[in-house]
Design a protein around this nucleic acid. Structure first.
Lengths: 246, 246
DNA sequence: AGGGGTTGCGAACACTGTGCGCGTCTGCGT
DNA sequence: ACGCAGACGCGCACAGTGTTCGCAACCCCT
């Protein structure tokens, strides 16, 4: 880097001790990677571009990160820190656990939608699961569901998380394709409708559903997605509650 | 291909009308792509290798498929044909819908585990959703849940599918990393335990859970995954049933 | 017999992740 | 104050990727 900041190599042009940016560090690399992923999606992240952003060569990154896959695991754990879980006390006594679980689920979804590339990565998931932030996340969930009084907390957690992951990844993937189209979500849906209707032409139930949707006044797609998420969440929580009281 | 099979150009060396393998066709390409994906995972599929498998050059494929992404969408729809849904009659009368839903969910999971690359692709999902097989799948689900008497069938379907997708992708991703390790699932778990326990050292609930697992007699991991899946499935179905009778 | 449309292909382009060896810089032990 | 070992950054190179383009061979219809 010194060589680059000093293009004419001579004793006279050399700066003695430049304030020097924080240099290159693992955390700085991961942080910038997350920024790039959020901005331009997963296939826009390359080691060269990431290096360039940090005023570094591509291969310099390999001093701090073994491989790109490892970098992705670190990125996952980095954003995992954003997911909040209410303190376990909130669930003690049996009343508050539903609100607490709802909040935890909502926080997961919000994080997944804020970082849509997460969905693409969860499917290939090396063992990011062992990252400190994800570990702490699991721990807090376990504390919450144990305090709530579940006989098999891990089972309940797996169930809830599966639902939340399934819904969130689907949603994130949808939003990614919408974003790539350049249109707003509403416009994209409108533009997609004809094709969808034609594809559904031979299928009675689907055709009817599309026809109904076309007749009704157009709904805010964001509100619709929210409603869909909370509906399913209530279903899962109802099912879990039966295991709690029984 | 004729030119390749016929390196000496002359009337005499030319084969008149060789039985000729089915040549190159969209369906043949997609079918072979699925075979390769199943065998070696998603990152092992390249256009050149796929072409080679079909005795064709890489670029020849582009006569039948616009882009690799499109090929992946076709592959998804191809395997979607394997997912079965019981006929709607099974659900009429209210009794059989649970068994039918269970079977549909199980079939989805089985397909996802048979083709683990599906999980990696669902996260980026272009609009494979419009493929004929997936459309027919949605239709049969809609028929089933409508016959079961759900007031909002699509809501129920979305909920169930989210759970099944979440659980299955997680499972498939796990199985993929296991497979890459070369070990059996049991051995891999054993090899992973120390690291997991160390990572969980500072987290009470997790540490306890790991300790319990270490004490108990080792369980067949396959059976354990099956149990986990059906537990969550029952939870979701219970929650749905409340919406049905109400 | 001829010609038009379809199909396959080789070369080429712009990129990718990553290994290697070299120069430079830094901090520590004397 | 000095010297040196280790950490650090970097350019080059390699093998491989998806995809475009122009050309050649083939089939079928007139």
């Amino acid at each position: 880097m010194a060589a680059k900041a000093n293009p004419v190599p001579s004793v006279w042009t050399r700066q003695q001790s430049p304030p020097d940016q924080p240099a290159l560090s693992r955390t700085a690399i991961v942080r910038e990677a997350v920024v790039m992923l959020d901005a331009d999606g997963i296939e826009a992240l390359s080691m060269r571009k990431l290096g360039a952003r940090l005023n570094a060569g591509a291969t310099s990154l390999y001093r701090h990160v073994a491989t790109k896959d490892e970098l992705m695991e670190l990125a996952v754990d980095e954003v995992a820190a954003e997911i909040t879980v209410p303190p376990a006390d909130a669930a003690r006594g049996g009343a508050g656990w539903r609100a607490a679980a709802t909040e935890a689920a909502g926080s997961f979804r919000a994080t997944a939608l804020r970082h849509p590339w997460l969905s693409s990565v969860l499917g290939q998931a090396g063992l990011a699961y062992l990252g400190p932030n994800l570990m702490s996340y699991s721990e807090r969930l376990a504390a919450l569901f144990t305090a709530a009084g579940f006989p098999e907390p891990s089972r309940a957690i797996d169930t809830l998380l599966s639902y939340v992951i399934g819904m969130s990844t689907t949603e994130a993937a949808w939003l990614t394709t919408v974003a790539r189209s350049g249109d707003s979500e509403g416009d994209f849906i409108a533009r997609l409708m004809p094709a969808a209707q034609q594809a559904a032409a031979d299928h009675d139930h689907l055709a009817e559903a599309y026809a109904d949707a076309a007749v009704r006044a157009p709904v805010d797609p964001v509100a619709l997605r929210d409603a869909k998420f909370t509906y399913g969440l209530e279903v899962v929580l109802d099912g879990l509650e039966m295991r709690l009281t029984a």
